[in-house]
Amino acid sequence: MPDLGIDVLFKGTNAKRLLEGLWVSVRISLISVAISLTLGVVVGILMTKRQKAIRILTRGYLEIVRFMPQMVLLFIVFFGTTRVFGWNLDAEFAAVVVFSFWGVAEMADLTRGALISIPKHQYESAEALGFSGRQTYFLIIVPQTVRRLIPLSINLITRMIKTTSLVMMIGVVEVLKVGQQIIEANRKSSPNAAFGVYATVFVLYFLVCWPISLFAKHLEKKWAVE
C-alpha cells in the first residue's frame, strides 16, 4: 500500500482549515446565487418584452457572458478595472461581482426560456374564462413557470459552486488554496500530501454539489410537464 498522504489531514487543525476554505467558496457562491436568482428573474421578464432597446441591450449582455470565460471576466474586474479606474477591490468582492454578472445572465436566459415555453393557449384559455391580465399572469403563468424554473436554477447553483474554484487564481484563500498551503507546509513530513489533499478537495466538491444536483433531478422528474 503506497503512502497516500492522507495522514496530513489529521495533523493539527488541517482538516478544519480545509473545511473553512470550503466555506469561503460556498459563501461566495451563496451570495452570488442570491443576487443572480433575484435579479435574473427580473432581467428574464424584461427579455420577453417587445421594446427594441431592451432587446438589444439584454441580448448583448447575454452574448458577452456566453462568450467570455468566467476567468477572463474575473481578470478584467480584478486586474483591469482596478488599474484603469484606480480603485481598490477586495478579491472576494470582485468574485461576487463577476459571478453575479454571469449568474444574472444565465438566470435571465432560463427565466426567458421558461416563460416563452408556456403555450399560447394557456393565455387564451385564461382570457376566455374571463381572467384579467394580472390574474392570468399570477395565477396561471407564474406557477407553471416556477415549476419549470426551479430545477434549472438549482442546477445553476451547483455550477456556481464549481466555478468559485477559480477565485484562487485571483488570490482568494479558498479550499484549493488552503490545500496547497497544507501541502507546502508538510512537504518534508509527508511528501505524498498532494495526492491525499487534492483527492479530499475533489471529494469535498462532489459531496457539496452532488446532493444538490440529485435534488434538482428529483424535482425535474416530479414536476415534468407532459
Binding site: T158, K162, L166, M168, L176, Y198, A199, V201, Y205
Partner: peptide
C-alpha cells in the same frame, strides 16, 4: 465529473 470543477480535477 459533472459535480466537480475542472480546476480541482486538473490539480488532482
Amino acid at each position: 465529473f459533472r459535480n466537480t470543477p475542472l480546476l480541482v480535477q486538473l490539480f488532482f
